[in-house]
Design a protein around this nucleic acid. Structure first.
Lengths: 344, 344
DNA sequence: TAATAAAATTAGAACGTTACAATAAATTAT
DNA sequence: ATAATTTATTGTAACGTTCTAATTTTATTA
């Protein structure tokens, strides 16, 4: 701010060398004698010198700032993801600017612009619902490295890292069907999102493979909140023949479903089996513990982080996507202890 | 990065004016004719000009970046707080750099330094466990505006915004005692943290006021995780006369306790009543819905944000603390439907 | 119309850093 | 010893912006 801060020339004077030498010393250049470097560093320390990244960025025309844009940080999974991402970037020497868009495209536009003005080196984004390629057109044109996680940017030429939703949901569905469940539902997610579509494919693949009667399956989209899910599940259980298994879009939805079922006095593990997706921290300390698909959040974060950093170092690198195979973690919620006889 | 970007001189040339005029136009200065401003803005738009905050910061010796440092983002409450803070700063025209310290003081040191080198205008921090004043000494000396939330920096001269833990816990304790509960416990929190100490005071104040027999109360600290809490609660219920009420340090602890109790086949609302603190999103979609103290997270965030911004504008502003009175939200978890007769 | 005041625009020097080219010092070879 | 190398160090011009002071233009007044 106001108080004239210690700068390189100050350190230079104190150490009795030139500006250039100080600059070199600060980046531990091999061109300098170790003795000189030590002398400079000591002077810097004594003066309380603090490096000005901003000035360096200006001169170098580059920066070590990453913009991280997340669609819904109130969802614990995204919070876990954001934390992992931040940690990885931080370990790689980057600093991250963070923004939550609450699935709002306009907000997303705004922070994107703000981040660019601040000179981020690249953008890591979990796109808001309905994001279109054109939202990023000008940034791609300018050559800003972008990688998306969890949700692709439709039609965009950028790295995309996500769990293999289809595979995961297929396995979860299979797992329920293996227990003799016949009436099964998939619940949750925004109807026209890619992440929903992929999951739906997995669900359908499994029920088709098991040759389940098509009118014994249901697919009910709903907003990804506990509340919405707990309300949506009413639709299901108010029916004449409610499903015996629910494959949930994600853990948040599963938690909402758990609540809804409990309120309707249906017991998970007895009347009905459910699975989640994301394997959030809470899964194994919730009653009953929630079976879920582990997306290997940390690996996801590492891949995304690495992808972006690669792209920063070599902007011409071709696009590379990664789909990480999730692992089904079976806990109590998906095990029917006494399966009621289905009426034939 | 590399591609020579459009700069003010470029816009100036295109608009047929000088650098200075463009600069003035960009900040919508009243010194310029509206006609001129329009002309400049049009040129800027056509060229795809993007403002370089970094260069401006350098020249102005100020910035619009805030460093936000949070001790535990895996705790949904802190995630909610972080989101609210980010939103407020963003609305005020600031961009926030975020870091999670995982309660690690060394990590905190590192990001603090990194943020400073990047030239943040101020720091908003929820300090890691055991943070000492000296960790910030050099930053205070340099005049960096800092405000702390949720946990004070012991002995430091900086604004501090938090819920009134004591008042809140006292009210929650009172609420349980009002139902005729006699054996009561306080569970959770790090023994030597200020936030624990304050809560303990509130708990003790309530039990003393109700003249509860001192050996019918217990205070059990534990790490703030679901797992730790669910294990800690065993200690309580394995006793000869387990408590009938547990005042939990926070919601996360309460969720852990809920899980632990469930596993031990104790029913909340029948055998035992519990309260949480933080009123996180999940409270009302968990079974049974958790009674909790609402810290008014958004107001907390607004106060913290305002405090910091005030301090940025007037660094000489005297220190001002805010303790926000939490509101007890009574849900099912704290209501004993049929209180078992206490043995007289 | 000339003199003055007010309004609009601009020149140019910073801000703190880096990196190239140039110089100085130390080392080796002749 | 001197020339040729190699190794260390430094002068200086940017990077893209802002802001003061100076200048030009326009409006006002006598």
């Amino acid at each position: 701010m106001k108080p004239p801060s210690i700068t390189i020339p100050d350190v230079a004077k104190a150490a009795g060398v030139s500006k250039s030498t100080v600059s070199l010393a600060l980046q531990d250049s091999p061109k300098l004698r170790t003795e000189t470097k030590k002398k400079v560093m000591k002077a810097a320390r004594q003066l309380g010198y603090v490096y000005n990244q901003g000035a360096a960025n200006l001169r170098r025309r580059s920066s070590s700032m990453i913009g991280m844009i997340i669609n819904d940080l109130t969802n614990p999974f995204f919070a876990e993801l954001a934390i992992a991402l931040e940690r990885h970037f931080s370990e790689a020497g980057y600093v991250v600017m963070m923004a939550n868009t609450s699935e709002d495209r306009e907000q997303q536009d705004k922070v994107l612009r703000a981040f660019c003005e601040h000179g981020v080196a690249g953008i890591l984004i979990s796109p808001a619902y309905n994001t279109a390629q054109q939202d990023f057109a000008s940034y791609f044109a300018r050559g800003l490295p972008i990688v998306s996680v969890m949700q692709p940017i439709p039609g965009a030429e950028c790295d995309y890292i996500a769990p293999d939703y289809q595979l995961g949901i297929q396995e979860a569905t299979q797992h329920l069907l293996d227990q003799g469940i016949e009436r099964i539902a998939f619940l949750g997610g925004r109807l026209d999102s890619a992440a929903f579509h992929e999951r739906k494919k997995g669900f359908l693949a499994a029920v088709e493979k098991a040759a389940i009667d098509p009118d014994k399956i249901q697919i009910i989209p709903c907003a990804v909140t506990r509340k919405a899910a707990s309300e949506a599940v009413q639709q299901l259980i108010d029916q004449e023949h409610p499903p015996q298994g629910i494959v949930c879009y994600c853990d948040i939805v599963a938690f909402g479903v758990t609540f809804g079922l409990h309120n309707s006095h249906l017991e998970i593990g007895v009347d009905i089996a459910i699975t989640g997706f994301d394997d959030v921290l809470a899964c194994d300390t919730v009653s009953p513990p929630l079976s879920s698909l582990r997306p290997h959040t940390d690996q996801l974060a590492r891949l995304a982080c690495d992808s972006l950093i690669q792209k920063l170092k070599d902007p011409t690198r071709p696009v590379a996507n990664h789909l990480v195979k999730p692992k089904l973690i079976v806990r109590e919620s998906s095990i029917l202890t006494k399966l009621k006889q289905p009426q034939h």
